[in-house]
Amino acid sequence: MENTNKIALITGGSRGLGKDMALRLAEKGINVVVTYNSQADDAQNVVSQIEQSGQKAAALQLNTGDTKSFEAFTETLKQTLTDKFGTDHIDFLVNNAGIGGYKMLDEVTEDFFDELFNIHFKGVYFLTQKLLPVLNDGGGIINVSSGLTRVSLPRSSAYASMKGAIEVFTRYLAKELGARGIRANTVAPGAIMTDFGGGHLRNSEQSQKMVSDNTALGRPGVAEDIGGVVAFLCTEDARWVNGQRIEVSGGMAL
Rank of each mutant, 00 (worst) to 15 (best):
I30V: 13
N31T: 03
N31V: 02
V32K: 01
V32M: 00
V33C: 02
V33P: 00
V34G: 01
V34F: 00
T35V: 07
Y36T: 05
N37C: 13
N37Y: 11
N37G: 13
S38M: 10
S38G: 08
Q39C: 05
Q39D: 10
A40R: 15
A40N: 13
D41H: 08
A43D: 07
Q44T: 07
N45F: 03
N45D: 11
V46F: 02
I50T: 01
Q52H: 05
Q52A: 06
G54E: 00
G54M: 01
Q61Y: 06
L62V: 12
N63R: 08
G65E: 03
G65I: 02
D66S: 10
S69N: 10
S69V: 11
F70L: 09
F70K: 05
F70N: 01
E71D: 11
F73L: 13
E75Y: 11
E75R: 14
T76I: 06
K78S: 11
L81E: 07
D83Y: 05
D83V: 05
K84N: 08
F85T: 09
F85E: 07
T87K: 13
T87G: 03
D88G: 12
H89R: 15
I90A: 07
D91Y: 07
L93R: 12
L93C: 13
L93I: 13
N95Q: 11
N96G: 12
I99H: 11
I99S: 09
G100Y: 00
G100I: 01
Y102R: 15
K103G: 12
L105C: 14
E107P: 09
V108G: 13
E110D: 15
D111W: 01
D114T: 14
N118I: 07
H120Q: 08
K122H: 09
Y125T: 14
F126S: 02
F126E: 02
T128Y: 11
P133I: 11
P133F: 09
V134A: 02
D137S: 14
G138L: 05
G139V: 02
I141Q: 08
I142A: 04
N143L: 04
N143Q: 05
N143R: 04
